[in-house]
Write a protein that binds this DNA or RNA. Sequence first.
DNA 1: TCTGGGGTCCTAGGACCC
DNA 2: TCTGGGGTCCTAGGACCC
Length: 434
Amino acid sequence: MFALIDGNNFYVSCERAFRPSLRGLPVVVLSNNDGCAIARSDEAKALGVKMGQPHFEIRHLEQSAGLVCLSANFELYGDISDRMMTLAAGLGPLQEIYSIDESYVGDLEGMRDLTQRAWAIRSRIYRWTSIPTCVGLAPTKTLAKLCNHVAKDAERKPGSYPKEFAQVCNWAEMSAAAQQDVLHRTLASEVWGIGRRIAAQLSEQGILTAWDVAHMPATKARREWSVVLERTVLELQGLSCISLEQAPPPKKQIASTRSFGQAITDLPPLIEAVSEFATRAAEKLRAGGQRAGALQVFAHTSPFRPGPRFYRTATIHLEPPSCDTKVLVGAAVAGVRSIYAPGYQLAKAGVMLLDLAAKGVEQQALDFAAPGSVRDQSPLMEVMDRINGRWGKATVHVASTGNAEKAVSDWRMKQERRTPRYTTVLDEVPIARA
DNA sequence: TCTGGGGTCCTAGGACCC
DNA sequence: TCTGGGGTCCTAGGACCC
C-alpha cells in the first residue's frame, strides 16, 4: 500500500499561512519575473485562471474580481515543505519525497486503522503548518495518485466524485462498484503518466476514461505506445510496477535557466546572466558532491514574439570534470561568446551541467594536492558555499570578466546601490571548446 | 510592454565492432 | 529473388511530471 500526501494549491497555501487575510480571496502565485501563474487558489480557479497563464492576460481580474497576484517566494515554500514532509513521514515506515508539495509513504501493508491514521496526519499537518492536504491510499502509486485526485475534486467540485471520498480516499476500502464508478468518472488525461499527446492518441481509439485505460490490453499499450503506458495500465489494474524511491538517485543533470524580464541584445549583460546561472548550477553541483564533465549554455529569442529567431546551444567538455565555480563560469562565458550574435531580442538563456559523476576520492585528494593548480580551488569553493549559506546568496561571488579593473568598478557601483557585499575578483579560465 | 524552471525516462537511428 | 546477425554506445527528440 502507498499513500500520496499532497498540499492543496501549495504555494498559495504557504502565502496564506503567513497572511491569513488572503483566505477566501482569489489568489495566484506568479513565476519568475511575474511572468505567469504557477499556483492558484480555488477561488482563482473559479475565475477561470489557467495554470501557466500569462500575468498580462489575467491582470484585469485584479480590478474586476479582486484577484490577488503574488510574486513567488521559493525559499519560504521550501521551508514549509520541509516541515510538511517531516510530519507526513509519520504515516508509515518509508517515504519518497516526490516534489515540493507531494510525498509518497510506503510499506503500509497490514497497518491497522490506516484511513484513521491518514486523517490524523492530515489534521496534524494542518495544525502545525496551516497547509491543507489531501491523501490518496491505494495498492499502487498510480492508483494512490488517482485517489488523491478524487480526494481533492470530491471536496472542491461538488458532483465530480462521491462526497465521502473528500480529503482522504482509500482505494482498498471502496466497494468494487465504487472503484468502477471512480474509474468511469476520471478522464484518461487525468491519469498520472498520461499527458495531452497520449490522451489524444488514445481518444482516437475510443479510449476516453481511466476505466478504458485500465481495461485495454497491456500488450497493446506496449506495442502501440511504450512500456511507460504499459506500466500505467497494469498499475490501474492494481499491479504495482513503480516502486518507492527513498534515497533520490544521484542527479544526471543540473540546470539553471531564466527568462529575462526585458529582452537582452548585447553581449555583456548576457555574459553576466550566464555567469550567474553557472554559479547557481555549480552550487547545486557541489551540494550533491558531484562534478560535471560537460557544460551546455543556450540562449534564445521568445517563441511568442515576432522578429528574427535565434536558438543556439554550445557544449563545452570539461577535462578534467570540475565543480569549481571559476571553471564552470569560464566555460559558460566561453560558450556564450561562441554562439552570440548581435541583433536578436534574447528572451531566455541558461546553463546545464551534464555528464555528472560523483566526486571520487582521488579527485578530492587532488583538490588539496598542488597549491596553485587549477584543481586546488575546492577549499575556496567550500568557503564560498559556507559564507553564502550563512549570509545569503551571492554574498561572495566570482566576477565573470577578464578585466579585473572593470570587475572592481562594477562591484563599486553595486556597492553604492545595495547593502554591502564582498566579491573575489577572478579571471576567466581558458577552456578548450569541443 | 508582459508568456516558468526545473527534472526524468524511453525510443529510434546511426556509428561502430566482431 | 536472395543481400549476416548480433552487440554497444551515443545523440536527438519526444513525452511526461510538478
